[in-house]
Simulated assay, not measured.
Amino acid sequence: MRETAPQRTAPARARAEIDLAALRANVRTLRGRAPGAALMAVVKADAYGHGALPCARAALEAGATWLGTATPEEALALRAAGIHGVRMMCWLWTPGGPWQEAIEADLDVSVSGMWALREVTEAARRAGTPARVQLKADTGLGRGGCQPGDDWAELVREALRAEGDGLIRITGLWSHFACADEPGHPSIAAQLDSFREMTAYAEERGARPEVRHIANSPATLTLPESHFDLVRTGIALYGVSPSPELGSPADLGLRPVMTLSASLALVKQVPGGHGVSYGHHYVTPGETTLGLVPLGYADGIPRHASGAGPVLVGGKWRTVAGRVAMDQFVVDLGGDEPEAGARAVLFGPGDGGEPTAEDWAQAAGTIGYEIVTRIGSRVPRVYVDGTR
């Protein structure tokens, strides 16, 4: 067995390079798809794994006028980091949440039911200032949102009463698509009809929202009739296609923002018949070289991609050999002998021959959203062109 010597100044174990110029370009592309609507840059889940604060700033530089997060804690962190003077919405609330802090931070908060309306109005009394409230309608996703019919009528009535009392301002009416990433799905038209009916009901009774919105990334790209006053762009912002059915990022005018790479920790020769990784699900077919990639499922590399995940090493596509472990996995280099420290690219834009996040999604039986979002905190984010 022979091991290649490590470089004296080896690069970092791994890095996720975040191209903020690409993100800004994606914002401009998405604005061009919805020229009559404002654009919300969704930076929840640490900007889908890309880093919420740098990505929020880049998106605003490129013309986004709203920011969106799932949890109030995410939005409050952005305010604490200095993001002020821009509308910011958060929508995933549970009883006892930080309503007063959100009101005092000038956040738009989502309300889907009476419990939330009661909590936000009480917080507004304590804060001594009206809360900015967006009423969410369940138009068919069956997740968050208020049901049409009597439930919606009650929520609208009580919200208008609270507005009349000076406790809230109804700043938005909104909903979310279930199948916008499946072109032609019958639920799309049904949800649009329901959204129009539910917003009309609220407006007929006196609601005067600043924005009405239902369009997510796929709807922004393919359904101009859904754009209304605001579009909420998440995954497309980061250059990942919402669905292969809609086309590749290049087809959609987008560029992937994240490139994930690592430095080979070891390169060694092994004989044929050599078992690789836990369970020996891969056995070398003949004498070969193995490369050890120091990333594993603790870093977000999907274990489901064992035996299938693609990696670019030395200008050639390699495949994960055997199981992905917690901190590392192996690729069969087929006799090639790059030095330890050589770069292994798991995914990126693809124009350098490397795999893409979608290639990993296919290998793991999941979606591109999960691939980029799950990259863990042990992998440092390195920002490129982050000063413009």
Rank of each mutant, 00 (worst) to 15 (best):
P11E: 02
R15D: 03
R31Q: 11
A41S: 12
D46G: 03
A47V: 07
A47S: 12
A58M: 05
R79F: 05
A81I: 01
V86R: 09
R87P: 08
R87E: 15
W93Q: 02
W99Q: 02
E101W: 00
V109L: 11
G128N: 15
T129N: 07
T129C: 14
A137M: 14
L141S: 12
C146P: 12
Q147M: 12
Q147R: 15
G149S: 05
D151W: 12
W152R: 14
R161I: 13
G172C: 06
S175Q: 11
C179V: 10
A180G: 07
E182P: 04
G184P: 10
G184L: 05
S187I: 08
S194L: 07
H213W: 09
S217Q: 02
D229Y: 10
T233Q: 00
T233W: 02
L237I: 05
L254I: 08
V257N: 04
L260Q: 04
V270R: 14
G272V: 14
V276Y: 01
S277K: 01
Y282F: 11
V283E: 00
V293P: 11
D299Y: 03
I301R: 01
H304Y: 01
A308N: 11
A308R: 15
V311E: 07
G314R: 02
G314D: 08
D327H: 13
G334N: 08
E337Y: 08
A342Q: 07
L346Q: 13
F347Y: 14
G350T: 06
G350W: 04
G352W: 04
E354C: 02
A357E: 03
E370K: 12
V372E: 06
R374T: 12
P380V: 09
V382M: 03
